[in-house]
C-alpha cells in the first residue's frame, strides 16, 4: 500500500487524529510511538515529498472566522469546461473545484468575507463565463472531519 509501512501509517493516524499541540509536537509523537524524534521528522518529511501529506496545521471554522461559504454548481458544455474552470479557479475564495459526472458538471466551493461578497463573486463569474450558477449553502453541519483510517493494525 504505497510502500507505507506500519510505522508510517501509525504516524499518519496520529497526525490526523491526535496531533500534540505542544512546543515540540514531533518529540511528543516520538515518545508515544517509542521511536526517536529524528525518525519521526525524517518519515514525515519523506511522506510530504511523496505527496501523501498535503499540509499540517489548523483547519479553521469559516463561520467563526466571520466568513460565508457555499457549494456551487453549474452546467457547462464539454468543450467549455477548461475555459470556465479557469475563470472559477481565478477567484481567491474558490478552494475546491471538480468536474463531476452529473447534469451539473462543475461543482466548486466558495468562501468569502460575507454573503454579499460571495454573491458579487458569483454574479461576476456568471457574467464572464456566461453560465448560471446554483448556490447551495449549508444550513446545518453534521460533520466535518477528514480523517483517513490508515489501518495501522493491518500487517501488510
Amino acid at each position: 500500500m504505497n510502500n507505507l509501512d506500519r510505522l508510517d501509517r501509525r504516524i499518519l493516524n496520529l497526525m490526523q487524529n491526535d496531533f500534540p499541540l505542544t512546543t515540540q509536537p514531533y518529540l511528543d509523537m516520538a515518545r508515544k510511538l517509542d521511536i526517536s524524534e529524528e525518525e519521526v521528522l525524517t518519515r514525515i518529511q519523506a511522506m510530504k515529498q511523496r505527496g501523501i501529506i498535503r499540509r499540517t496545521g489548523a483547519i479553521l471554522d469559516s463561520r467563526k472566522m466571520g466568513f460565508y461559504s457555499t457549494l456551487c454548481a453549474c452546467r457547462v458544455k464539454e468543450e467549455q469546461i477548461d475555459k470556465v474552470a479557469a475563470i472559477i479557479n481565478a477567484q481567491k475564495g474558490v478552494t475546491h473545484n471538480y468536474v463531476r459526472d452529473h447534469y451539473y458538471n462543475i461543482w466548486f466551493t466558495l468562501t468569502a468575507p460575507s454573503q454579499d461578497e460571495a454573491r458579487k463573486i458569483i454574479k461576476n463569474v456568471e457574467q464572464i463565463a456566461g453560465v448560471k450558477i446554483l448556490i447551495m449553502p449549508a444550513i446545518k453541519t453534521y460533520k466535518i472531519k477528514v480523517s483517513l483510517n490508515m489501518g495501522e493494525n493491518n500487517e501488510d
Binding site: 483547519i59 471554522d61 490508515m150
Partner: peptide
C-alpha cells in the same frame, strides 16, 4: 483558539488519492 472553535482541528491533511483512498 481551538477551545473557542475558531480552529476546528489541528492536524495533518493527507492527499486522499496518494494515501490509498
Amino acid at each position: 483558539l481551538r477551545d473557542q472553535g475558531v480552529i476546528r482541528r489541528f492536524a495533518a491533511i493527507l492527499r486522499h488519492y496518494n494515501a490509498g483512498f
